[in-house]
């Protein structure tokens, strides 16, 4: 008999996920893990403390693991914690770390921002990725962080303060309109479009998504995501990098957007992403739609592969114009 949980997937969601995960065992693992709470990952805020120092401090109270030698800032707290314990710790209040799920760190690893670059985070709130970007930039260059909602920007501002981010200008505008107004003013080396999405990848931390989920929302968001990337791309410098990411598995919000970009912006080339976790390639076909691009270059992160949340990342480079 099927286990019963407080929140259960809608039949249409199950049907779609079975199509994405045709292997029965694979789907069973997916449907099981989405009802389990996610692991306690944190990211060391290197603007304020080094990973080795932070680890030393945290080890006085918790068992701490650094699962990726190439990314020592990523830490897993293995001790069983009380609810809210990570947020109440003094190291958190001091801004020494950010509570951030592993999959949510991946888009910035793909973006790879550097010192003295111009970076644009179009949908920035609550700031996990923005603070990660600022740390990679060592508070140099220029970071524009935008969110359209005033409520969300207050949360963003508070997280930026706590993490000691000083190279940022925060804007509160509807994304498409902001891009329009930035045209002819500034070009960016790196742009992150971590788009608003249906959140199918966040079921472990936000199980209420099971109830909120509906197919109409996916179609509506797909349209918005296309408009956002369409507006952002003209702001990218030649040889600049754009990362498009979502925390959903819906191909309408993932591969369909990649195809839209490649069809409409031939100067953008899809780039292979190297991430320290197991990634699956994109889907080549969804319902009647064919995604005839190099699907092996995009990353689908399923929760059962890395004991994480679900995610999608695609990376593009803007090629130089031929003279």
């Amino acid at each position: 008999m099927e286990k019963q949980y407080k929140y259960m997937p809608k039949p249409e969601f199950e049907e779609r996920m079975k199509k994405l995960l045709p292997d029965k065992e694979d789907y069973r693992k997916f449907s099981e893990i989405v009802h389990k709470e996610p692991l306690n990952f944190i990211r060391c805020n290197t603007l304020k403390i080094s990973p080795s120092e932070l680890k030393k401090r945290l080890e006085k109270k918790w068992e701490v693991e650094q699962p990726f030698s190439s990314c020592p800032e990523i830490m897993l707290i293995k001790t069983a914690l009380k609810p809210g314990e990570l947020g109440k710790a003094e190291e958190h209040l001091f801004g020494h770390y950010y509570v951030q799920e592993l999959s949510s760190m991946l888009s910035v690893l793909a973006l790879n921002p550097n010192e003295n670059e111009n970076v644009f985070d179009l949908c920035a709130s609550p700031g996990s990725k923005t603070t990660q970007i600022a740390a990679k930039m060592k508070n140099t260059g220029l970071l524009i962080a935008n969110d359209k909602s005033l409520g969300r920007i207050i949360v963003l501002a508070s997280n930026m303060e706590r993490c000691g981010v000083s190279n940022v200008i925060m804007t509160q505008m509807e994304g498409i309109s902001l891009c329009e107004r930035l045209k002819n003013k500034i070009k960016f080396d790196k742009i992150l479009v971590d788009a608003p999405c249906s959140g199918e990848g966040t079921l472990r931390s936000s199980p209420e998504t099971f109830d909120i989920w509906n197919i109409n929302m996916i179609h509506m968001l797909s349209g918005l995501q296309k408009r956002l990337v369409e507006a952002a791309i003209p702001l990218l410098k030649e040889n600049g990098t754009l990362v498009y990411s979502t925390c959903t598995h819906a191909p309408e919000e993932d591969e369909e957007i990649v195809k839209f970009i490649l069809d409409n912006f031939p100067e953008l080339r899809l780039e292979k992403i190297h991430l320290p976790v197991k990634c699956r390639e994109g889907v080549g076909k969804w319902n009647e739609k064919k995604f005839n691009f190099e699907t092996e270059k995009v990353c689908r992160i399923y929760p059962q592969d890395n004991n994480s949340e679900g995610f999608f990342v695609a990376k593009f480079m803007k090629q130089q114009k031929r003279i």
């Binding site: 000083s166 190279n167 200008i169 925060m170 804007t171 003013k185 500034i186």
Partner: peptide, 27 residues
Amino acid sequence: RAFSGNLTEQDILKFIQNIHIEGYGLY
């Protein structure tokens, strides 16, 4: 507020025209 970005005062004034700015740098 302290801003460590690579914009000068003049750059900032140009940049902010028609843009709703919520904050610069940190308190």
